[in-house]
Design a protein around this nucleic acid. Structure first.
Length: 775
DNA sequence: TGTACGCCTGTTTTT
DNA sequence: CAGGCGTACA
């Protein structure tokens, strides 16, 4: 028999060997989802049903794509390089590069990441003299991306009021600006690629004929545009339909807030008339109690596709629950337990500390630091997002594409070369008048300002010239020196890290070149489209340069959040970041109402259900041991907040839990030991910085007086305002939509409310004037 | 051109 | 409380 299929359970086996027809695999947490996906690919190839380049596999993250390729090459003796395995964005980029002319893009189009996009929008609003208080750039960005993710161009968006009409108008102008500059934002990669295939029959039919098998990971996370894209490639509606093999778990859909649409699973079943449904319900990860708790919890959600995980391993240990009086004591308890775990033989990297929001990590870090337990926090700035790296990349982008105004503005005066705000204003005016890029407008500026600008342009030209015949790492080396970026940071007090990072960029380029197997020469002559052109039988395939590929790589894969480090460390991260990972021991902290479920979710449509799925994801990360904890009071935004335990704790079956503290009712009757909530983390070892001491002091201030005051405030806030509204109430406004009342003040005609609107931010509105309805 | 101060905000995040 | 951002000023 086929060795690939050894050791698969019956459902996994069935999924792997399904006939080439649409299929939906409902894969529970820890049920071997990635294994099924990769084994199916290997099986399809090995049995000769599909050639490696005729198969498309899509994931959401680069990490998942890499994992798939690694496993694949371990299963099959094939070169995975030419395979179409990647993220939606990565694959779309590849198609757009190959067919840039048909897509209406310059060969050298650059990719804007979210922050580049935001600065492009700010720049546009400024140029148009638009009040960014009235039309906040962030909101505009959200509006545009949202529209694009629904597959809508500006002309397709319906606007019912002046505000939205303005946004639509700005959306159109923004797209024009991007086109002029030869740049493409993230959602544009997808939309542009969709439109390319939709409009170009020859290309569409070529790729439809080619990708007989399309496999999608984390299908529950797809948005509308991604679904439409898949539908197009699967040749939906015609015969024959390509085999779309979708793997997902509706219970792990935790990204609705960024446009993911779980309904795509049902839509897929319906529209593709899916006949093959397979549920992977055997969990190979967690012990029985952990799984039982997760199952019981998720059963509270309505509208599930329905699935119940089971395990062949025993019940295991109960879930330990701890209720601490304060967040500091919660952290301290956690440290003690971690010490015990380590003493029991758990290694540090097998212990994860999870929390709902990043702000919670501070107090935990502080406690771990004091106890000298090595830890690593995930999240935060990533390599390619660092300012110095973005500066270096901006020079490279200008070498590649002179019209990239975002890159131009980023470095035209960095390091400073006497080009001030008024010069740039003048330049931007000229550019607008002649409808051309800033770079192209430089020769039209006269005087001293003009000569400074010319010097900058000459520098770029010189770099471009020198780049010919150099390898990519050599080009970068040249750029960071000639631009004087290196010298600039060397002269800065705290600049050494940045200098190191710039050097690291050169290394990253070297690694990139060898990984991709790209030609060593940056010349735009014969180098390859990512990997093999030989298999690219598509019409009009354009070549691409290593520099272009590297820049795309930098934008599409921002790199690790934190540099790798030697010592094994306890892992700290948000629950979102933990998705897809597993640990022997997991601490799930901050299980308080308002924090988890997050208070903002309470007023969102299906918000609590998404939070519950998040809790489900959190629980199912644990293999052997799960701790859950909460704090009755917590320092948040410089204020002490008091909360009751999370409803999710109440939803877990009592028989799976072991309370380490007496089960109490929290706030009020039991608040007697708050006074003893003193910090004993004081800066004893002298290693703390200013910040640490400030925290200590802040914490030490907690006392009964504050407790009483805060409790009173909570009671007052919960009371009803004379207007009939109350804090925390969900309201609807005809113009701003849904929101929540944050503050209420004044009486009668002066009564005002501060409302946090979902789409329009915080606003103070006069209750006598604004038409607010309670919802 | 750089710094200082004051205001505001404060979930989750990949590409 | 604290970091980010934007304006005002030297």
């Amino acid at each position: 028999m086929n060795a690939l299929l050894d050791n698969l359970n019956p459902e996994q086996h069935a999924a792997v060997t399904l006939p080439p027809e649409p299929a939906l695999i409902l894969a529970g947490a820890g049920s071997g989802k990635t294994r099924v996906l990769t084994t199916r690919i290997a099986w399809l190839i090995q049995t000769g049903q599909v050639a490696p380049h005729s198969l498309l596999a899509v994931t959401f993250t680069n990490k998942a794509a890499k994992e798939m390729l690694t496993r694949l090459s371990a299963m099959l003796p094939i070169n995975t390089r030419g395979m179409w395995v990647g993220t939606f964005h990565g694959l779309c980029n590849r198609l757009l590069r190959a067919h840039h002319r048909d897509a209406g893009l310059p060969q050298t189009f650059q990719i804007l990441d979210s922050s580049d996009q935001l600065s492009a929008l700010k720049r546009m609003l400024k140029a148009l003299n638009i009040d960014d208080e009235k039309y906040p750039p962030k909101q505009l960005q959200y509006f545009i991306n949202n529209a694009k993710e629904c597959g809508l161009r500006a002309k397709d968006v319906e606007a019912n009021d002046d505000f939205n009409r303005k946004f639509v108008e700005l959306y159109a102008l923004y797209d024009e600006q991007c086109q002029r500059e030869g740049v493409v934002d993230f959602p544009e990669l997808l939309l542009r690629c969709y439109e390319l295939l939709d409009r170009n029959q020859i290309l569409r039919e070529h790729y439809q004929a080619r990708f007989r098998h399309i496999l999608v990971d984390e299908f529950q996370d797809t948005n509308s545009l991604q679904y439409a894209w898949l539908k197009l490639l699967a040749n939906y509606g015609k015969q024959p339909t390509n085999a779309l093999f979708a793997v997902g778990d509706d219970d792990q859909s935790i990204y609705a807030f960024r446009g993911a649409n779980v309904a795509n699973m049902e839509k897929f079943e319906r529209e593709f008339r899916v006949r093959h449904h397979i549920k992977l319900e055997q969990n190979y990860r967690s012990h029985g109690h952990i799984l039982e708790a997760a199952n019981t919890l998720i059963r509270q959600n309505s509208r599930r596709l329905g699935k119940n995980l089971w395990t062949a391993s025993g019940e295991g240990e109960p879930l330990r629950v701890y209720e601490a009086p304060t967040d500091m004591l919660e952290a301290q308890w956690l440290v003690e337990e971690i010490k015990n775990l380590i003493a029991e033989g758990y290694s540090r990297e097998e212990i994860a500390v999870l929390y709902r929001s990043n702000a919670q990590s501070r107090v935990l870090e502080h406690a771990l630091f004091s106890a000298m337990i090595p830890y690593k926090v995930y999240g935060g700035l990533r390599f390619f997002e660092r300012a110095e790296i973005k500066h270096a990349l901006a020079y490279l982008r200008l070498i590649e594409n002179k019209d990239d105004d975002t890159a131009f503005l980023r470095v035209v005066n960095f390091p400073t070369r006497g080009i001030g705000a008024r010069t740039l204003e003048q330049l931007q005016d000229t550019a607008r008048t002649y409808n051309q890029s800033l770079y192209a407008s430089v020769p039209m500026i006269a005087g001293k300002a003009g000569s400074n600008l010319t010097a900058f342009v000459n520098l770029i030209e010189q770099m471009r010239f020198a780049a010919q015949g150099l390898t990519l790492p050599e080009v970068i080396e040249q750029v960071i020196h000639q631009s004087t970026l290196i010298t600039h940071y060397q002269n800065e007090k705290e600049g050494q890290d940045r200098v190191d990072n710039l050097q690291e960029l050169v290394n990253a380029a070297t690694a990139f070149i060898s990984e991709e197997g790209l030609a060593q020469d940056t010349g735009a002559t014969t180098s390859l489209v990512l990997n093999d052109t030989s298999a690219e039988s598509a019409p009009n395939v354009a070549p691409s340069t290593p520099l272009a590929n590297f820049l795309a790589h930098a934008a599409l894969e921002a790199g690790d959040n934190q540099a790798a480090e030697g010592t094994p460390a306890v892992q700290l991260m948000t629950v979102h970041a933990a998705k897809g990972l597993e640990f022997n021991a997991v601490f799930l902290t901050g299980l308080e109402e308002g924090l988890f479920p997050h208070e903002n979710s309470l007023v969102e449509l299906d918000g609590v259900e998404e939070e519950r799925r998040l809790m489900y994801v959190a629980i199912t990360r644990a293999r052997k041991r799960l701790y859950m904890s909460l704090a009755q009071s917590r320092m948040l935004f410089g204020q002490t907040r008091y909360s009751v335990k999370s409803r999710f704790l109440e939803e877990l079956p009592e028989n799976t839990l072991k309370w380490l503290t007496p089960k109490v009712q929290a706030l009020g009757s039991n608040w007697s030991y708050g006074a003893s909530a003193q910090s004993n983390f004081g800066g004893s070892n002298g290693q703390y910085g200013k910040k640490d001491r400030a925290w200590d002091e802040a914490w030490d201030k907690q006392d009964n007086a504050q407790t009483a005051a805060a409790s009173a405030k909570i009671r007052q806030k919960q009371g009803e305002h004379a207007s009939g509204f109350r804090i925390g109430q969900a309201v609807f406004h005809t113009k701003f939509g849904e929101g929540v009342i944050l503050e209420l003040e004044g009486q009668g005609a002066d009564a005002r409310a501060q409302i946090k609107f979902r789409r329009h931010g915080n606003k103070w509105l006069a209750l006598g004037i604004a038409k607010l309805t309670a919802i």
